[in-house]
Design a protein around this nucleic acid. Structure first.
Length: 553
RNA sequence: GCGCUCGUAGCUCAACUGGAUAGAGCAUCGGCCUUCUAAGCCGAGGGUUGAAGGUUCGAGUCCUUCCGAGCGUGCCA
């Protein structure tokens, strides 16, 4: 048409009356050529680009090309479709997420990084990428001096759960502030720790181990795929920190300012316009998180040979990562062909839009959060699912609660803050995990009644008779494009919205089209196939979000 | 002060990155269980997308200004 790289700009229609898809490219082309967009659209339609699809093409509005797919085409395509999806070029992707602190229980502040990160790694793996999970736990710092000093004075201390250790830390901090001798001891332990004193190191390892076991327990309750072997703590980079400073020095990037070793990067300024430094070594010789993060970055691009390095932290660290990546490029830790991404997310707020805390102003622990969720879910399950045994009710409540917590987080645009509201997330109305789980349970129930194996109906001829069957089929076919969009922007909420839409259309189909009482055996099989396909989309979709599905509820 | 993120129905969130009449759920009101799970489905009302300009055939989305919110801004992470 005389235009470089014309784009078809095909999207699902906003309104059913415009068909199934709309191509908006004609208007863009017309703009470039200075011609009438409807004429361009007509020329495109005349060339019959979609002849083999046998689709109906119309021109609407200023030059939209509306596409209505042929029912037979839709049915055949769906019956032949599988959900397997591979990217053309598989990459090695390092994903840094969750990152709890040792000697501190996992709390709401870790929720989003953990849940969103875990969904993304599953999605990356699903489409064929190699993912290297990195749990960058905070296992180092001056806080450990207090902890170890206190640990040594309280020999009877035996509560080695993370909760016990955290209490110990609180007591140690108090002692540190009030007892001069103890403060001295604590500072001494920090020095001993840095010098690798065997006794101190043993205590430290003890604490780290106990903490990590607890963290893993919460992961397992939340169905998070991080393993102990994915842990690579800050301390593991200690030995190479001097070499990082050296690398910076060798590149001529290091400047000493007020006794601290700094890197100044163009474009980073303070309020008065003076350059803002990244401090890599304090005036007392100690290193900072910038230094550790640089070391981790080097490790990831060099040792782990990453094509992509992804970080999930809240949006408050935007500045830090922007600087980290800038310095990483200057010092050569980020080769040209490697991409680094800081995926940000907003804070978790309570119903009233304030930071989500306990009444006492403490962080809400994930352990407590899960317990409360299960309790609330159990109340609902008991009142609604009397047909289940009490053991089954327990199991369902757990799946519903964990699913609800994760889905509530994942279904919102991660860049914004979101409000944590039990009543909304546990409700069966609306875009929630229980709603999707319920639809899936209904499908399972159909196959149980029919005494048939769902998986045997994944393939089979589909007949689209009722409008709600057609609408469902159309949605089921959009799995691939949704997944692509989802990974393109690393935003799981696109997938959630899609799964919700599929479920809504399934529910309509369910109301309008009796499956087991279908008029003909042929129609029965077709509807069983639609059910099976729906269940598969829900199962695989939610599996990739880290959410499980009860067979009955 | 500067930087970042944001402002959409009474509330919680969408809107495929510039496309057609801005969509869901909650809440409100009204219907549907002798038929596969009513934890469901169907319908109604509800909007000057914070404000004003600008670019465009076309703006919630892009540019400018203003108003408002949250976060960040040198030895914590």
């Amino acid at each position: 048409m005389g235009v470089e790289n014309p784009r078809a700009l095909v999207f699902a229609t906003t309104n059913e009356e415009f068909g199934d898809y709309q191509a908006n490219g004609a208007m863009a082309i017309a703009k470039q050529l200075g011609r009438n967009p409807r004429t361009i659209a007509q020329e495109i339609v005349d060339r019959a680009p979609l002849a083999d699809l046998n689709a109906e093409l119309d021109i609407g509005g200023p030059g939209f090309i509306n596409v209505r797919l042929n029912d037979l085409f839709l049915a055949t395509t769906l019956s032949e479709s599988t959900l397997s999806q591979r990217v053309e070029r598989a990459e090695r992707i390092v994903v840094d997420y969750s990152s709890p602190n040792i000697a501190k229980e996992l709390h709401v502040g870790h929720l989003r990084s953990t849940v969103i990160g875990d969904a993304l790694v599953r999605l990356f793996e699903f489409v064929g990428h190699t993912v290297i999970r990195q749990n960058h736990v905070g296992d180092w710092g001056t806080a450990f001096g207090k902890l170890i000093a206190y640990f040594n004075t309280d020999q009877e201390f035996s509560d080695l759960t993370i909760g016990g250790i955290e209490k110990l830390y609180v007591a140690a901090s108090q002692e540190f502030d009030t007892n001069v001798d103890f403060a001295e001891k604590a500072r001494n332990e920090v020095i001993k720790l840095q010098r690798q004193d065997p006794d101190t190191l043993r205590t430290w390892e003890y604490i780290v181990q106990a903490s990590l076991e607890d963290v893993q327990r919460i992961y397992s309750e939340l169905d998070i795929s991080l393993k102990l072997s994915d842990v690579r703590g800050e301390s593991s980079y200690n030995p190479v920190l001097p070499s990082v400073v050296n690398d910076l020095d060798n590149k001529g990037l290091l400047v000493e300012s007020d006794g601290a070793k700094c890197v100044f990067v163009n474009g980073f300024q303070r309020k008065d316009g003076s350059p803002l430094p990244m401090i890599v070594q304090k005036s007392d010789g100690g290193y900072l998180y910038h230094t550790t993060d640089l070391a981790a970055l080097k490790h990831r691009t060099q040792e782990l040979a990453a094509d992509r390095v992804i970080y999930l932290t809240d949006s408050r660290q935007i500045h830090h990562f922007r600087m980290l990546f800038a310095v990483g490029k200057l010092v050569g830790y980020i080769p040209q062909e490697v991409s680094t991404e800081h995926l940000v997310f907003g804070s978790v707020l309570n119903k009233d839009g304030e930071p989500f805390r306990t009444r006492g102003g403490e962080n809400v622990l994930l352990r407590e959060l899960i317990d409360e969720g299960v309790e609330r879910a159990l109340d609902i399950v008991r009142s609604k699912s009397g047909h289940l045994t009490s053991g089954e009710q327990q199991q369902v409540a757990r799946q519903v609660a964990v699913g609800a917590i994760k889905y509530a987080d994942l279904s919102k645009n991660r860049t914004n803050d979101y409000r944590f509201d039990w009543d909304v997330m546990l409700s069966l109305d609306g875009n929630t995990a229980p709603y999707l789980q319920y639809a899936h349970a209904r499908i399972c129930s159909i196959f149980t009644r029919a005494k048939k194996d769902m998986n045997e109906f994944l393939e089979g001829e589909i007949e689209l008779q009722h409008p709600s069957e057609r609408a469902l089929a159309l949605r089921l076919l959009r799995f691939a494009e949704t997944l692509e969009q989802c990974l393109d922007e690393r935003k799981p909420h696109y997938l959630c919205n899609y799964l919700y839409e599929v479920t809504v259309h399934f529910m309509r189909f369910y109301e309008n089209c009796p499956v087991l009482k279908a008029y003909t055996p042929r129609l029965l099989d077709s509807r069983l196939c639609l059910c099976s396909k729906t269940a598969q989309v829900l199962r695989i979709g939610l599996k990739n979000l880290g959410i499980s599905l009860p067979l009955r509820m």
